[in-house]
Amino acid sequence: MTAHLPIVPRKPVDRPKAPSFAPPAAFAPPAAPLHMPKQVLTPAPRALWRALRRGLARLIAALPPGRHRPG
């Protein structure tokens, strides 16, 4: 049996071994999900409109009564 084994030349000791590498699924970071909600970065137009109306209403309320304001 041994006579049929191929003869493999020895590698020099100091030569680094060529790494054989399988696709690294095994080396991927562990699965440990963390919920990461998308942030809101654009103001909602409706909220802006509401704020504008509230501001105007407050301004009108602060004005003294006169021709520009009934009552």
Binding site: P24, P29, A32, M36
Partner: peptide, 28 residues
């Protein structure tokens, strides 16, 4: 303790790369 992964699509560039990692593995 040293991990490697490559994304199939680089959505969101560097920020997206980190975000994907945190969402998938951040709790570790």
């Amino acid at each position: 303790r040293i991990f490697y992964r490559r994304r199939e699509r680089n959505t969101g560039r560097k920020a997206g790369n980190i975000e994907e990692f945190v969402a998938a593995s951040g709790a570790a």
